[in-house]
């Protein structure tokens, strides 16, 4: 959508999802090799499974939205569609603004390189340039609280330290839209609190945040709006307290 269009219609959406459906091919026995494909070319046992059905959802700039729902309801698929990792079977998704997904922490980490080098690798996956990384590397290291460990290879880190480094990179990428999937359970109590503080800060600076989480307590403090996804459809969309109340009533 062009800028002119938006102004004309007076909209200010960060994420616009229209009639999106997503189906996955489900194979009973997937044939990857040529031999198998030739031998079994007739009995292709596959079934289309519809994970999301005609989802329409608009998220305004500066909103913080929680996606709730039971396992396998399609929340993560929806997040993946927003990041363009996968594409919808039908419908359209338009994104306005720089988007970062915290679906996977430490993507692209190389165990033999130091924490500092890995900050560069990891941040570059999010599309940052060397100068941009240089300007915030101190902030990242400070946030991770790794101190001198930053110059040791990441294979020597404990899993908690690894996650802390990864989270510090992701949170400092400076995107306008942040998608977060179940990763807030990072590190110890102290670090978790720090993460929420940082998210709170980002929220105040008018970033759009979409969170998938099962820790209803913390998201109810943080988000304004919640969308409950059940069986690939939007079951309810409203303020966080309304939705969580209803969700706990039905699924709790």
């Amino acid at each position: 959508m062009t800028k002119v269009d938006k102004k004309k219609r007076g909209e200010n959406y960060a994420i616009k999802i229209e009639n999106v459906s997503k189906s996955f091919k489900l194979f009973y026995d997937k044939h990857y090799t040529l031999k198998e494909r030739l031998v079994f070319w007739k009995n292709k046992k596959c079934e289309m499974k519809e994970v999301l059905r005609e989802i329409s959802l608009n998220i305004k700039k500066g909103e913080s939205v929680a996606l709730v729902g039971i396992n396998g309801s399609g929340k993560s698929t929806l997040l993946k569609l927003m990041t363009k990792i996968i594409y919808p079977t039908s419908g359209t998704i338009s994104i306005d603004g720089k988007l970062t997904s915290l679906l996977e922490l430490g993507a692209g980490f190389h165990p033999d390189f130091t924490g500092r080098e890995n900050i560069y690798f990891n941040a570059s996956i999010f599309g940052l340039t060397a100068a941009e990384i240089d300007s915030r590397i101190n902030e990242i290291i400070e946030f991770s609280e790794l101190g001198n460990l930053i110059d040791s290879p990441v294979r020597t880190y404990s899993s908690g330290q690894y996650m802390r480094l990864a989270f510090s990179v992701a949170i400092n990428v400076d995107a306008e839209i942040l998608l977060i999937d179940e990763i807030l359970a990072v590190g110890d109590q102290h670090f978790q609190e720090k993460c929420f503080q940082k998210l709170e800060e980002l929220k105040k600076s008018d970033k759009t945040i979409v969170i998938v989480s099962h820790s209803l307590g913390s998201i109810s403090q943080f988000c304004d709006r919640a969308v409950w996804i059940n069986n690939g459809r939007i079951a309810m969309d409203g303020t966080i307290h309304e939705v969580i109340e209803k969700y706990l009533e039905v699924c709790g």
């Binding site: 033999d112 570059s124 996956i125 599309g127 060397a130 990384i133």
Partner: peptide, 21 residues
């Protein structure tokens, strides 16, 4: 152009990471 840093760090990883150790 936008992802030039990713290209650079990938190349670096490719060249140095392979024989590290």
């Amino acid at each position: 152009y936008n992802y030039r840093q990713l290209l650079k760090s990938n190349v670096k990883k490719e060249i140095r990471g392979k024989y590290k150790g």
